[in-house]
């Protein structure tokens, strides 16, 4: 093994094995999945995201949501995910074809968000939760995302999307808290997270 060429052939051969197995083969096998057309209601699954929700996924990325929240539901034999009501079925590769980057995550300091838009679809709730998590979720250790909101003086009538905040986080009289474009996009993304639909490879048990 003292010859340089032999050593490098060895380095290359061992490494290329894993590259072929864990990079190339998966890409060939499930790297070109298409949406599934549900004949009953003529809907493509998974549905494409709106522009605002797509932008929201970038806010999700920029602020590191993945460090505490997963977006994957494991099958019943591989964990408690279904028992906790985090989904109607396990998630499969096709569920993620619109995701750039992927947000599967590795940590559950907070709950899984695969179907958060199904569990909680109130835009007002999400804004309040992002602004002051513990006010709507007692005991939460989620960081407050107040910097995604803006305090402004009320001119005339209060803004329709102003947050209904009481207590220590409330603004001074004459001022209101409104979401920035980033906050609106993030909430649009969160309420769009809904993978409850059945797929041929992942049916929903009735």
């Amino acid at each position: 093994m003292n010859r340089m060429r032999n050593l490098f052939i060895g380095f290359f051969a061992t490494f290329i094995c894993s590259w072929l197995g864990l990079v190339l083969a998966p890409h060939i096998q499930f790297g070109g999945l298409k949406e599934y057309l549900n004949e009953d209601d003529n809907q493509y699954l998974p549905p494409a995201r709106t522009g605002l929700a797509e932008r929201g996924s970038q806010v999700y990325a920029a602020n590191g949501c993945i460090y505490c929240h997963t977006q994957q539901v494991r099958p019943a034999h591989q964990g408690y995910d279904l028992a906790r009501g985090w989904g109607a079925r396990r998630t499969v590769a096709r569920d993620y074809i619109h995701d750039r980057p992927h947000f599967l995550g590795t940590m559950r300091t907070g709950p899984d968000l695969t179907n958060i838009g199904h569990r909680q679809n109130s835009v007002a709730w999400h804004h309040k939760h992002l602004f002051a998590p513990a006010t709507v979720s007692k005991g939460s250790i989620m960081p407050p995302f107040r910097y995604l909101y803006r305090k402004q003086r009320i001119v005339g009538a209060p803004s329709p999307d102003a947050l209904q905040i009481e207590g220590p986080d409330a603004p001074e009289p004459g001022f209101e808290i409104v979401p920035t474009e980033d906050a609106k996009a993030l909430v649009a993304y969160l309420v769009s997270l809904n993978r409850m639909y059945p797929l041929p490879e992942a049916p929903v048990d009735q």
Binding site: L22, V23, P26, H27, F30, G31, G32, L33, A93, D95, Y96, I97, H98, D99, R100, P101, H102, L104
Partner: peptide, 11 residues
């Protein structure tokens, strides 16, 4: 980028 789940395994 490759598709979502392939990104995860490459990741």
């Amino acid at each position: 980028p490759v598709q979502g789940s392939v990104q995860a395994i490459v990741n």
